[in-house]
Simulated assay, not measured.
Amino acid sequence: MNKIIKITVLSIGHLLIDLEGIYLINKQFNDYDFKYIAFFFIIYNVIAFGLQPFFGYFADTKNKYLHFVIIGSILPIVAIFIKDVGIVAIIISTVGNAMYHIGGGVISVNLYPNKAAPAGIFVAPGVIGVFLGIFLASRAFSYEYVIAVIGIIVIVLIFIIFRGFELKSEYKKINQNFVKIIILILLIVAIRGFIGSMLMFTWKDNTVYDILLVAAIFLGKFFGGILGDKFGFKEVGIFGLIVSAPLLLLGYYWSIAGLIGALFFNFTMAITLFLIIDNLGKYKGFAFGLTTLTLVIAFLPKALGISISFGFTYYSTILILVVLGSYILYRVVSLDEKNNKLREC
């Protein structure tokens, strides 16, 4: 029960961290020209996600995960109260975002060694935080104090729950083929990120459907690891990808197909995150950061205005990438299973 409380509080903290960062940049949208906001958004993603491998490596070598959680929780709260200083507020918020992701992610995974479920449980609430950040920033009312009070309550809870906490970092020996496994995992992450950035739904600009889509993504990320632990990573991950492909394509017109497809599509998130963390020994924070850096790279084409027009190219690209991602996932899990058997010998 104590572990469940810990991971629940860390997950709520993750929701708040993403909410605070997105709320900040969307509030600034009202005060700055679009060109500045576009620049701020790039800075936000580069620091918050692109630099996570460096934050992760530092946390790994110094074992400062809980420190990262505390400092990472405080900085975004400070940032929303100094939003008028523009880029400085963005940098403060994003540094906190990166630190919290690394600290909270590694602690969550270490609470339940050899399980993918914690990765999904910790990461999943982030999509809700992003949605709420955009939604609250669009309201006339200023929510800075409300967000700050909730954030401070969570920080106090973290202090209380983790008082005297010592992180027992259990990790496996790094295998000789780890480079191959890491590259293959990052390819899956890149494929998932690229597909996610290119998907088109005609029904998406509707608040109710937006909420349902967020819920579907949340549930997919949340339950992917849980189901993977129970039924197998190959079975759940590959099933999720293959089934999601036709549903996502049909989802261009039909919302129910798109929503179910989004749920299945996100099953692989927790599985791939766990596998990369599990294969980099004590460098779990660095591993976590590699996945976020890969997502930033995968979203670059979309950020640069590159898109695929709806039609044959759109359909074929999605299908080919899903099949490729499924094959790569099969290879990764097979290699990981082989390594685990060798360790037992």
Rank of each mutant, 00 (worst) to 15 (best):
N110I: 02
Y112V: 10
Q176W: 15
V123F: 14
I102A: 03
F131H: 02
G96N: 02
L187S: 14
I152S: 02
K180Q: 13
L132R: 01
R163F: 15
Y112H: 00
I188L: 12
I188T: 12
I161W: 06
Y145D: 08
G193N: 11
V106P: 03
I128T: 10
V106H: 05
L157H: 03
R163C: 10
S138E: 05
G105N: 11
Y145L: 13
I160K: 07
V189F: 06
S169W: 07
R163K: 14
I188C: 15
A116I: 03
G96W: 02
I107K: 05
I160T: 08
A98I: 04
I155V: 13
I134G: 05
V149E: 01
E170N: 12
F165T: 10
F194G: 04
F135I: 09
I161T: 02
I150R: 01
A137G: 11
V123A: 04
V130E: 07
N110S: 14
G126W: 01
L136T: 09
L132P: 12
L199G: 08
G96V: 06
G120C: 11
V156Y: 03
V149R: 04
Y171H: 14
V127E: 01
I181Y: 04
N110E: 13
V146S: 09
G96L: 05
M200S: 13
N97A: 09
V149N: 04
I160D: 01
V156D: 00
I191R: 00
A137F: 09
V154G: 02
K180V: 10
V123I: 13
N97F: 09
I152H: 02
A98G: 03
L199H: 07
G164H: 00
E166I: 12
G196W: 03
F131T: 10
F131K: 01
